[in-house]
Amino acid sequence: MKDVIFDDFQNTVSESLIRHKSILDIITKLQESNARINRAIVKSVTNCGCIEVNAKKQNTLENTNMDIESLKTCLSTQVKGTLCDNCRDVIQNEIGNNLFYLTSLCNALDLNLYDILLKEYDKINTLGKYSFR
């Protein structure tokens, strides 16, 4: 059933994309949409203040005997707080636009988004925590 949703989304994107059909337009719109996601997150910190970024060095290399489970607990997203409803909506919309252009790129290159997702999912499941992403 999920593959139907992905295929339907990919087909709908293909039918919806009219102005930016050139591969060059698609990749630049994808890059622009990625920048808009970044900007929306930054504005959540700097304008709204619903989240904070507490960025600092993540000390993991000092302890060379650290196992994977310990590593997972000592690393942090460095995000403090929770997105407010407004910031959440804005970021979700920007990510949606990004998915649209990513799907457009798949269409332009005759790639199936669901197949890509499955391949990545299988890789993650095979390597698990050892994929080190």
Rank of each mutant, 00 (worst) to 15 (best):
K123T: 07
A35P: 01
E94N: 05
S16M: 13
L71V: 03
C106V: 02
N54H: 12
D3S: 08
C106Q: 06
E62R: 04
T60H: 14
I26Y: 04
E32S: 08
D122N: 14
R39M: 07
R19C: 00
N59D: 09
T77M: 03
N47L: 13
N47V: 09
I68P: 00
F132A: 04
L109M: 11
I23A: 11
G49K: 08
R36A: 09
V42M: 10
V45F: 14
L83M: 05
T126S: 12
M1Q: 08
F132W: 13
K57M: 07
M1S: 10
K2N: 13
E120Q: 13
I37M: 09
K57H: 12
L83T: 02
N11L: 04
D3K: 14
K72Y: 08
K21N: 10
Y114R: 00
F9Q: 02
V45Y: 15
V13A: 04
F132I: 02
S33F: 10
N34T: 09
I95M: 11
C48H: 11
A40L: 06
C106R: 09
I91F: 09
V79D: 03
I18W: 14
E62W: 07
D3W: 15
L71K: 12
E52R: 10
G81F: 06
F100Y: 13
T28N: 13
N34Y: 15
K56A: 08
Y121I: 02
T64I: 07
K119E: 14
N93D: 13
C84H: 13
M66G: 00
D122S: 12
A108N: 10
N11D: 11
Y101S: 00
N54S: 06
D25P: 01
E15G: 01
Q92F: 10
N65C: 01
D3V: 02
N65P: 01
K72C: 02
F100K: 01
R88T: 05
N65H: 07
I116K: 15
K80V: 06
L109S: 01
V79L: 11
T46F: 14
L24A: 05
K2F: 10
A40Y: 06
T126Y: 13
K119S: 07
K43A: 05
N65F: 08
V13N: 04
G128N: 06
M1T: 05
K43T: 03
Y101P: 01
A35K: 07
D115A: 13
L118D: 15
Y130A: 00
D89Y: 15
K72M: 06
Q58L: 04
Y121G: 02
N54K: 13
M66V: 03
N98S: 12
C74M: 10
N59R: 12
I5F: 07
E52G: 04
Q78I: 00
Q92A: 05
Q31R: 12
D89T: 10
D110L: 07
C74Y: 05
L111Y: 15
C48R: 04
E15Y: 08
I116W: 10
D85K: 15
N97Q: 09
T28G: 00
L71A: 06
D110N: 14
L24N: 10
I51H: 10
I124Q: 11
D85E: 15
K43W: 08
T46A: 05
Y114C: 00
T28S: 10
E120V: 06
N97E: 13
T77F: 02
C84G: 06
K2M: 09
S33V: 01
E32L: 11
L102R: 13
E120I: 08
L71E: 08
Q31V: 07
S76T: 14
I95T: 06
F132K: 05
E32V: 03
K43E: 13
F132D: 15
